[in-house]
Simulated assay, not measured.
Amino acid sequence: MVPLLLVLLLVVILFGAGFALKVLWWVAVVLFVFWLLGFIARGAHPSGGRRRWYRW
């Protein structure tokens, strides 16, 4: 009985980790798209000058 419960617990943990990793991949893709759009649009400043959209 205990090994069965341990296997079920392992399945639940791995299923949860897989779902969380899939969500994190989608978040990473969305952030990459926003970064790419900001990188492309960085030169479109109303004053005509090139301005960085980030502060490093």
Rank of each mutant, 00 (worst) to 15 (best):
V23R: 14
L14I: 07
K22Y: 03
H45P: 00
V27L: 15
R52T: 14
Y54F: 13
M1N: 11
R51H: 15
V23P: 03
L4Q: 08
A44I: 11
V33Y: 04
K22G: 03
L14V: 05
W35D: 11
F34K: 15
W26A: 12
S47N: 11
W53G: 04
V12M: 10
K22D: 14
G38D: 01
R52P: 10
L37R: 00
A44D: 15
F34S: 04
V2K: 07
V27M: 12
R55S: 06
L24S: 13
A20H: 09
W56N: 05
R52K: 11
V11I: 04
V30R: 15
V7M: 03
V12S: 06
L5P: 00
L37Y: 02
R42N: 06
W25A: 13
V33R: 05
V11W: 10
G38E: 03
V30T: 15
V12I: 07
L24K: 15
G18V: 03
G43P: 01
F15A: 15
P3S: 06
L4V: 06
H45F: 12
L9T: 03
R55P: 00
P3Y: 04
F15V: 09
I13M: 08
L36S: 04
G18K: 09
L36H: 04
G16T: 08
R52D: 14
V33S: 08
S47G: 14
V33L: 09
V30K: 14
L37C: 08
F39Q: 01
W25C: 12
G49Q: 13
I13R: 09
F32E: 01
A17G: 12
L36P: 01
S47F: 06
L4W: 03
L36G: 08
G18P: 01
L8T: 00
H45M: 13
W35K: 11
V12Y: 01
A41E: 00
V7Q: 04
V33G: 03
V27T: 10
A17E: 14
F19T: 08
I40G: 04
G48T: 11
V33E: 09
F39A: 05
V2A: 15
R50Q: 12
M1Q: 11
R52M: 15
G48D: 10
V11A: 09
A17V: 13
A17K: 13
W53I: 07
S47W: 06
I40K: 05
A44E: 14
P3L: 07
L10I: 02
G48W: 13
V29M: 10
P46C: 06
F34T: 08
L4N: 10
L4G: 10
G49R: 15
I13E: 10
L4Y: 08
A28K: 08
G43W: 08
R52W: 04
L4P: 01
F32S: 11
A44W: 14
L21N: 11
F39V: 00
L37E: 02
A41G: 03
V7S: 03
L6W: 05
G18C: 06
L24D: 12
F34C: 09
G49V: 14
V12Q: 02
L8G: 03
F19P: 00
K22H: 11
